Structures are given as structure tokens and as C-alpha cells.
Simulated assay, not measured.
Amino acid sequence: MRQKTFLVFGATGQTGQHFVALALKAGHKVRALARNPEKLTSTGADLRVHPGSIHTAADWAGLVPGADYVVAMLGDRKTQEKHNINTAFVRSLIPAMRAHGVKRLLYQAGGLTRVPGRRLSPVVWTIRKSVARGYEGQHRDNEAVLRYLMQDAGDIEWMVHRAGIGSNGPSRGVLQRSASKISIATFQDCAAYNYRTVLDPAAVHTYDMSKYQK
């Protein structure tokens, strides 16, 4: 594969750090927006780190032109308790992508995110309303993002990974797309899944979970 350019939002997060490292190792260029650029552990001539926030379009709009793939791995649980910050960001991002002919977007959501028009299984719903109730704001925000993509962004090659992120331990194997089953995975494995999936045309307009291959 020839060298591509990845625009990464959430690069200093635990999944984002692994994603940036993978893309650079594969020989690609990475543009990353970070509120605290010093937290990014990767370095190299192919990495461009731009300080800024997703809340301010002027901070990131100039990073969109020329990108081949956009990857968003974002989460701010405290703020998302009251505000759909990711939804507001994606609603600004999609028009910017259209304006510059950037087609492919991978958005990472949580595994407890409900697909609009569908119900979560009783087990998953129970988990969401009990042990994961502190993340309800994030679930609502992710669901609003997915609803927007499904209803208003059909021209964009989007894909949503409903990830079951668990720990920062070593790799436990290879994750594969699944419409009905989910594995609690490491950050490293979720990043590898995101990297493979954003390159996969068959994943366009999917909102799958991920599970480990047997």
C-alpha cells in the first residue's frame, strides 16, 4: 500500500496512542490533534501534532485537506454527562470532510451503544444500567453520533466500532467484526482493529462490535 495520511482525533488516549504507533510503523503519515501534545508518545518525521481542541473548529479544520482517513477515538465522561460534545464535533467534521473530498471516517463508540431503531440485549441493557451507569452520558452521545451518520451522512464512507475496551494489557489476539457478540479487549487490540477496519471497504456503513477470533 502506498503511503496514506491519517487524521487522528483522540491520539493521546490509550487506544489512540496505539493507533498512531501502528499507522507510523506501517509507513503512513499521521496528523494528530491534541490538547496536550506532550502526552503523545510516538515520534517521527511522518507525525504532525497540532495543539488544539475538537470544540474549536479553527484548531482542526486545516488538518482535514489532504487526509485519506479520519479516525475519531474520543471520550470525556464528565463533560458528556451534560453535553453531546462528540455529536457537535462530528456535525462540524462531516461538512469539512465533504468540502475537501475526504470520504472515510472511523468513529469509535462504546460496546454498550445502542443502534438507532434496535434494542440492546437484556444482558447488555442490564450491564449498561448497573455497572456501567456512570457512562450513560457517553452512551447517549455516541448514539446521537450514530443517528446523525445514519440519517445525514450517507455520502461519507463512515464506520462505527462499538468497542468493548477493557485494559492496557498485552495483546490477547485478533479482533474481528461481529454484529451480535463482543469481547472485552485491550487498547492495543482495539487500535489494531480500528486500523484494519478503516482500510476495509467492506466495513463502510457498518456499526459492528468486535470479538476475538477463536
Results as ranks from 00 to 15, higher is better:
40 L>T: 12
43 T>M: 01
38 E>T: 13
113 T>P: 01
75 G>D: 01
194 N>I: 15
96 A>E: 14
14 Q>H: 14
197 T>N: 09
39 K>R: 15
50 H>F: 08
48 R>V: 15
106 L>P: 13
81 E>F: 07
117 G>Y: 04
59 D>A: 00
174 V>Y: 01
154 G>C: 06
21 A>I: 06
77 R>Q: 13
189 D>S: 02
104 R>N: 14
107 Y>R: 05
156 I>K: 03
187 F>T: 15
105 L>C: 08
150 M>W: 01
122 P>G: 07
6 F>S: 03
155 D>V: 07
34 A>I: 12
14 Q>P: 03
118 R>L: 10
46 D>K: 15
21 A>Q: 15
206 T>L: 00
126 T>Q: 11
20 V>A: 08
144 A>G: 05
53 S>W: 03
85 I>T: 14
69 Y>M: 07
65 P>E: 07
35 R>H: 11
126 T>L: 15
101 G>I: 03
117 G>V: 06
179 A>F: 00
175 L>V: 00
71 V>D: 06
136 E>K: 13
146 L>S: 08
130 S>N: 11
112 L>P: 01
17 Q>S: 13
184 I>E: 06
2 R>M: 11
22 L>K: 05
100 H>T: 11
126 T>C: 12
156 I>P: 14
57 A>G: 09
36 N>I: 01
133 R>K: 15
123 V>E: 12
67 A>K: 08
161 H>M: 13
164 G>I: 09
18 H>P: 02
36 N>W: 04
36 N>A: 08
202 A>M: 04
116 P>A: 03
26 A>Q: 14
200 D>H: 02
30 V>E: 11
23 A>N: 10
